[in-house]
Design a protein around this nucleic acid. Structure first.
Length: 756
DNA sequence: AGTCGGACTTAGGACCTTGGTA
DNA sequence: TACCAAGGTCCTAAGTCCGACT
């Protein structure tokens, strides 16, 4: 049974897992439609299935509440709280010797040669000891390297912060001359990189004490089209009012995008466009199909072509201007340090491009004006000025949040923010903390797994569902799956929101028992397709959960992410569903690196190994990309190159042979030299060939897998840093400049024997 | 307990730049 | 010198999770 945690082959190698994801989105349209119709009755229906057949599920209690529940939207008012009372105790009782139950952290059997590897250093922590001993995780994540004095550095660091604050205050006083002048500062600061990770962190929810910035950069105003570029309605040219024209250009610019052929997109666009028209225009333009934007489209194409054809000087000029804007608006001062802002430009107006089957695609995304903007900065800072003749919506001084600027977007009514770059202290600290939480999960994951396995047998439906869901989250790295408002977004799901129609049970499939076939659209409407053998008990539970349900019903009707996370929180401080993804991703990378790296291979081969390990994680997390449009062609080109190289090699070998023969005959210095030269040539070509082949393999295996997401968000950078140090691979081969900036903390602190 | 808004992380695609090669 | 693939950056949508409120 221990093998159950391993990701079986079918999960990974079946091309089906991802090969047709993009194509298959279509298929969901139909399903979704059905789902929507059904959903209205669904909440009411929920109660129906909850316990129906299973007498052992606290039935009495359930019955009493049945009516009550019908009043509520959601049928979960029958939660037997008392069951939780002796939970801690139960936990302890159910625990068994970890050594017997040793399981792969995240077994990942795959074409990538995964062996299961027992964890050597896991141990059982009593629930009490699991509670964080310190608020700030410090004891755990101090790298071995760090000096002892840092271990109890609170005072010291506190001091340091204080000192800094003082310095800052001084600066604020005379900042007119200094801080205000970004350039002066720019020259000084970047010289020594600030090691924020060696400093004390705020613990009280305060995110900063001083914050100063210049506000956002607004989208350039609309420039009306030149006279000769015309819009045609029903075959006749028609001049549009600037407002209507601007919106028309948004559509025109997208003309060769698939979006503009979609009904929903067109409908939404047209509706919103009409709102921008004068009443006269409105009267005339009544059918989008009679609109001809091609002249506009051509114009924009020509413009972007012209931009490409600009002279070096012109390009340089633009670059310099951008740099100037970056220097002025792209940085802020936060607690004494000049930090890079991530997205200091306000999103320009345009047509909303939702992913997947988004009901709001094509809607007009309004232009954001200063009056929409909330500024956040410290009281004692120099506040950003709104553009002349305008006002901010509000200026506030909330140091419990990290954003500098916010506004409310008009499509979903959600708030958008301007925040700092990943290289900033505020983001870095959080990132570091995330991996520390995942490492804490590592030390108690065995206990958790034991528990949820136990819970599969629970008398309570809710607990069983929770346990099965958690099993999926752990084993398959599924996302939590919050409920979403219907009709507002594309129909996608995660674990807790899976519906019956998303899984198929096969008592036996392809020679394996108890196979669950998953097929659903996840985040960004990326298809998740996977066939996984599960334990019998899980299988039986799933059958139970699906009994008497319609395809459109929730699989886990007694569960949502709040319930699940609440439970997780009780098992480990700071634990939520997404921590499992981080943990499983990182532990997989570490294992794979151990397995795939061999001492005698050269650097390119090592990098290939790294990419393979990275890829294993990307597959686990289902990080896909559309295959590059030019993929087939570029692959062919590469193959041609390889063939040519092979020929060249054969040729070089022939030459070497004859040179050898010459040397045997002549035995003089000259022929020896010639022979050596040929030998070198052969070697060189062999190396080149290998490089090409490695490249081909890498590319082929990467066809539709995106490595970036996991690298950036899931893999503890210290694992990679340690690996680089251990094998002498330059860090630049693994992380580019931006990534090195983001992971500066890890690069600085991890040594070669860092263990996740 | 459920809902909702807010804050923040995670995500893939578009677009732009770079560097190697024909 | 032009071209092209790869790599890097930018963009912003789409998730997760939390806490306030009801």
């Amino acid at each position: 049974m221990s093998g159950d945690y391993s990701h079986n082959d079918s999960q990974i190698d079946s091309g089906s897992r991802y090969n047709d994801s993009h194509k298959h989105k279509e298929k969901y349209k139909e399903k979704e439609h059905k789902h929507k119709e059904h959903k209205k009755d669904k909440d009411r229906d929920k109660s129906k299935y909850s316990n129906s057949e299973h007498k052992d599920y606290s039935e009495k209690k359930h019955k009493d509440k049945e009516k009550e529940r019908l009043k509520h939207k959601d049928g979960s008012s029958d939660k037997p709280k008392d069951k939780y009372k002796d939970k801690e105790k139960r936990k302890e009782e159910k625990l068994y010797d970890g050594r017997l139950k040793k399981e792969k952290e995240n077994g990942f059997a795959s074409p990538l040669h995964v062996k299961s590897e027992p964890e050597s250093d896991d141990f059982y922590l009593s629930p009490k000891s699991l509670k964080r001993e310190r608020d700030d995780d410090d004891s755990e994540y101090k790298p071995k390297k760090m000096k002892v004095e840092n271990e109890d550095k609170s005072e010291k660091k506190a001091k340091k912060r204080k000192q800094e604050d003082e310095v800052r205050e001084k600066k604020t006083k005379d900042k007119k001359g200094e801080v205000a002048d970004g350039k002066k500062k720019a020259k000084k600061e970047p010289e020594e990189k600030w090691k924020w990770w060696e400093e004390e962190r705020y613990t009280d929810g305060v995110k900063w004490k001083f914050l100063e910035h210049k506000g956002p950069v607004f989208a350039p105003p609309y420039e009306p089209l030149p006279e000769h570029v015309r819009f045609y309605y029903d075959g006749k040219p028609m001049r549009l009012s600037p407002e209507a024209e601007e919106v028309a250009t948004f559509f025109a610019k997208m003309l060769d995008h698939e979006y503009t052929t979609k009904d929903v997109f067109r409908k939404n666009f047209f509706k919103d466009w009409r709102k921008e028209m004068t009443s006269e225009e409105k009267g005339k333009i009544t059918d989008l199909n009679k609109c001809n934007f091609t002249e506009m489209h051509e114009y924009f194409k020509a413009q972007s072509e012209a931009r490409k054809q600009m002279s070096k000087e012109e390009k340089q000029k633009i670059k310099e201007e951008n740099e100037r804007i970056l220097q002025e608006y792209g940085f802020c001062i936060m607690d004494n340090h000049r930090e890079r802002i991530a997205n200091f430009r306000i999103e320009p107006p345009g047509l909303f491009r939702g992913r997947g089957d988004h009901p709001k695609m094509g809607m007009l995304k309004r232009r954001i004006r200063p009056e929409d903007i909330i500024i956040n900065c410290s009281k004692d800072s120099k506040q950003p000025k709104p553009p002349p003749g305008t006002k901010w919506k509000e200026v506030r001084h909330d140091n419990k949040v990290t954003w500098l600027v916010s506004w409310t977007e008009n499509i979903q009514g959600s708030i958008k923010y301007i925040m700092l770059n990943p290289s900033s202290r505020i983001k870095g600290e959080k990132d570091w903390q995330k991996y520390e939480t995942a490492r804490r999960l590592k030390s108690c994951v065995d206990r958790l797994r034991a528990q949820y396995r136990e819970d599969w047998k629970s008398k309570e439906m809710k607990i069983r569902q929770r346990a099965v869901a958690l099993y999926f989250i752990d084993k398959l790295a599924l996302r939590a799956g919050n409920e979403k408002e219907e009709g507002e977004t594309a129909d996608t799901v995660g674990c807790c929101s899976l519906r019956v129609e998303h899984i198929t049970l096969h008592p036996e499939k392809d020679g394996q028992e108890f196979v669950v076939e998953f097929d659903f659209l996840g985040k960004d409407s990326i298809r998740y397709y996977n066939k996984v053998p599960v334990e019998k008990r899980v299988f039986k539970n799933l059958q139970l959960f699906m009994e008497n349900k319609q395809p459109e019903d929730d699989l886990f009707d007694r569960l949502n992410t709040t319930i699940l996370n609440k439970h997780l929180q009780e098992l480990m401080d700071g634990l939520t569903a997404k921590v499992f993804r981080t943990y499983n991703a990182s532990i997989t990378l570490q294992q794979q690196l151990k397995e795939l790296t061999t001492a005698d291979e050269n650097i390119p081969a090592k990098i290939l190994s790294y990419n393979r390990a990275n890829r294993a994680v990307a597959i686990l997390c289902n990080h896909q990309r559309a295959p590059p449009k030019t993929f087939e062609k570029s692959m062919q080109n590469l193959q041609t190159k390889i063939d040519a190289k092979k020929e060249q090699l054969a040729d070089a070998k022939r030459q070497l042979k004859s040179a050898k023969a010459d040397h045997r005959v002549c035995k003089d210095e000259k022929s020896k030299k010639a022979m050596e030269a040929k030998k070198k040539a052969v070697q060189r070509i062999e190396e080149q060939l290998m490089k090409l082949e490695v490249q081909a393999t890498d590319r082929e295996e990467n066809k539709q897998i995106a490595l970036g997401t996991s690298k950036l968000n899931y893999l503890d950078p210290r694992i990679s840093v340690a690996w680089c140090k251990k094998w002498g691979v330059p860090i630049e081969k693994i992380y580019n400049k931006t990534q090195r900036e983001k992971f500066a903390w890890a690069i600085d602190m991890a040594d070669e024997d860092f263990e996740f």
